[in-house]
Design a protein around this nucleic acid. Structure first.
Lengths: 202, 202
DNA sequence: AATTGGTTTAACCAGTTGGTTAAACCAATC
DNA sequence: GATTGGTTTAACCAACTGGTTAAACCAATT
């Protein structure tokens, strides 16, 4: 592993857990097993190093979205693919959402740069949903609400992990991990029930 | 308004927007229209001032939960009351969730103190849900999942506001505020549809 | 008139941070 | 064997932070 990759790996770990403000260049150097001078030798400033970590992190999320979209013809196909792809990513990087949200709230002007760099095919999924509504496959729902609902159900439990662990599971780790195991299918079924056409054959 | 209240108001504004680490005592003093010396005269340290803001903030959330629970006999009553009470609170303090989550992720040991101070009647709502499941009023669902789902749908859009504004609404403020207006009933109906018993009278 | 308590001003301290620099070191390459 | 480039060490700087202090100020109270 090259020194540069080594630094990026260490920086990702520190930045994701601490955020930009609380992250310390010294800690990144320690984590990478090098010294601070060499850190600045590779990435001149903290800001430059952070930029790379941040845009890489966002791209990971984007990919789980676009990937699921490309491989799906129906909405329910997309839903199941996306939920599991996203959850799989978050299992490996549980600090990812809080990191992204924290930094976007800290400096919301950053999102403009991000928006131009990383084009997310939002109109495609909106269209897919709208079409299924028109065809009577799912109930009438605004695509924006449905999209927000999906992402909320997936992401929020990770952002609120400490609070859920404590106030809902009383710090019982077993109960909590059992909850997490079934979470994916629970989300999929919950959403499918909420948007299916009721069969009122009275 | 007393100086103390004045300081607390200013501190709340700054802490909620910036978080503990990024908040500056000087900025709080400026916001309160006083100087830094007087700030330390009232609240000896930054930590002490923060503690008060934080526990006050958490209490507000707790109250919208317990209040809705006390005034409801059925789950759907609780659901509608809670969703609207919570959203009403967040309309006034949109930075509240991100603040709480950020600080709990920064120092998760803080949550233990919080848990002992602020007892949240979680078992009551769990029981209410379990009873309705047994009585066949709603579909079989684990209370933990349902509770997490409710809170996710309410809170997440506030935490992810900049990202939703940009990637879903293309910075179109009108579309976004129209989305927010209908959000409360959208959440209620979405959940009710997801947990109702299907009437399969074939 | 004297006292009191909230308040301001301004300077200061110690600690930490991101960043820089110069010198030496060392292994691979030429 | 000389050169080169990555690397370390250690010291340093300027800026900023939370916090303290002493002195003066001022309005209300006694």
């Amino acid at each position: 592993m090259s020194t540069e990759e080594n630094i990026l790996l260490a920086a990702r770990k520190v930045f994701l857990q601490k955020g930009f403000m609380s992250a310390r260049m010294q800690e990144i150097a320690d984590e990478a097993g090098i010294n601070k001078a060499l850190l600045h030798y590779y990435f001149r400033t903290k800001e430059k190093l952070f930029e790379q970590i941040f845009s890489d992190a966002f791209q990971l999320i984007k990919q789980s979205f676009t990937g699921s979209l490309l491989n799906s013809l129906t909405f329910s196909e997309f839903l199941r693919a996306f939920v599991h792809a996203y959850l799989h990513l978050l299992d490996q990087m549980p600090y990812l959402p809080q990191f992204i949200l924290q930094e976007l709230n800290r400096d919301s002007s950053r999102i403009i740069t991000l928006f131009e760099q990383q084009k997310v095919p939002m109109s495609a999924i909106k269209k897919l949903i709208a079409t299924e509504v028109e065809n009577g496959e799912i109930i009438a729902i605004k695509p924006e609400h449905l999209i927000v609902n999906i992402i909320s159900l997936i992401v929020f439990p990770f952002v609120a992990r400490p609070i859920i662990k404590t106030f809902i599971f009383n710090q019982n780790i077993e109960d909590y991990s059992r909850f997490n195991e079934g979470r994916g299918e629970e989300i999929v079924q919950f959403i499918l029930r909420a948007i299916r056409i009721p069969k009122n054959m009275i």
